[in-house]
Computed example of a mutant assay.
Amino acid sequence: MKIGMIGLGRMGKNMADRLRTGGHQVVGYDIAPDSGRDVDSLQALVQALQAPRVIWVMVPAGKPIESTLDQLGDLMERGDLVVDGGNTRFTQDQEHAQALAAKGIGLVDVGTSNGIWGKEKGYALMVGGSDQDVARIQPILDTLKPEGDYGLVHAGGTGAGHYAKMVHNGIEYGMMQALAEGYAVLEASDLIKEPGEVVESWRKGSVIQSWLLDLLAQALKEDPHLSGIAGKADETGETKWMIADALELGVPTPAITSALYARQSSKIEDPMTMKVVSALRSAFGGHPIVRE
């Protein structure tokens, strides 16, 4: 199958490579000249594909995806299909689908997971869209997913793929935070000789054995006590969106919400919240204030 790929960054390039290895023809485009792109413009990309076209887009949510879809809407033809494999908010998928449908262009949203490991092991794919549109890209999905009867789900209609990925990322936050807090306790205890050895022992036969635990064990082998890593972690929009939707649905998500707050707090050098708390403790209880 011949397909266009927009966005040849860490994820997009690896996906294009996996597709080529699987026997597909990929025409790649990226705004960066040194990306290994095959064409140097969106117009050239569309022209290089025969109608009805399929173009997979791997660009960040927000302005990049908005701009790309607007341009594709003007360049592509009735019967063509766009696949948004980024992390677009599910409500925006529905808006994008309506705008493209007015021009006879279909949209499939695909939540994609497995980061840098996907090229070799395959990607977990969560797909949203009509049965007809999803069937059109089935050969592509079959090549990108891991081997075996798992790693691919048609989650529902437009937006369902990104919704499933949004929830997936929220769960990921909670799992990583639990591992992080547990390891921090091991590090702080005088009873534990080598925290890394404890983590290593959990990898087999333990209820918490997992790929994330394996990655933590490997990180500790490479950098015992993680002394070379700053205690800061970025957070992306998907978990905020999940928590917001969970509030609308009336579903409590305390673990995931706590994990999000922990990441946000990690980026604040001198949090205003703690200044306020310190001032109030001094005012009502006479507790000492640490001055800068």
Rank of each mutant, 00 (worst) to 15 (best):
Pro252Ser: 08
Ala233Phe: 05
His168Gly: 09
Asp190Val: 03
Leu152Asp: 06
Gly182Ser: 03
Gly237Arg: 06
Tyr173Lys: 11
Asp214Phe: 00
Pro195Thr: 03
Ser206Trp: 02
Ala217Thr: 07
Ala180Pro: 11
Tyr173Ile: 04
Pro254Ile: 10
His225Pro: 07
His154Ser: 05
Ala184Val: 01
Glu181Gln: 06
Val199Gln: 03
Ala246Thr: 00
Leu247Phe: 02
Leu260Ile: 03
Tyr173Asp: 13
Ser266Tyr: 12
Ala180Ser: 12
Ala255Glu: 13
Ala178Trp: 01
Thr273Asp: 05
Leu260Cys: 06
Leu186Trp: 00
Ile171Tyr: 12
Ala155Arg: 04
Met274Gln: 14
Glu194Ala: 15
Lys165Thr: 01
Gln264Ile: 13
Gly237Trp: 09
Val167Arg: 03
Leu215Lys: 03
Trp202Pro: 01
Ile256Lys: 01
Asp223Gln: 15
Lys221Gly: 08
Leu152Phe: 09
Lys267His: 00
Glu172His: 07
Ala244Leu: 06
Lys240Cys: 10
Ser227Gly: 13
Val153Pro: 01
Ala184Gly: 01
Pro224Ala: 14
Leu216Lys: 10
Gln209Lys: 04
Ile171Gly: 06
Gly237Pro: 05
Trp241Gly: 05
His225Lys: 15
Asp223Ala: 12
Val153Cys: 08
Asp214Ser: 00
Pro252Asn: 09
Ala188Gly: 04
Leu186Ser: 05
Ala164Cys: 05
Glu248Cys: 00
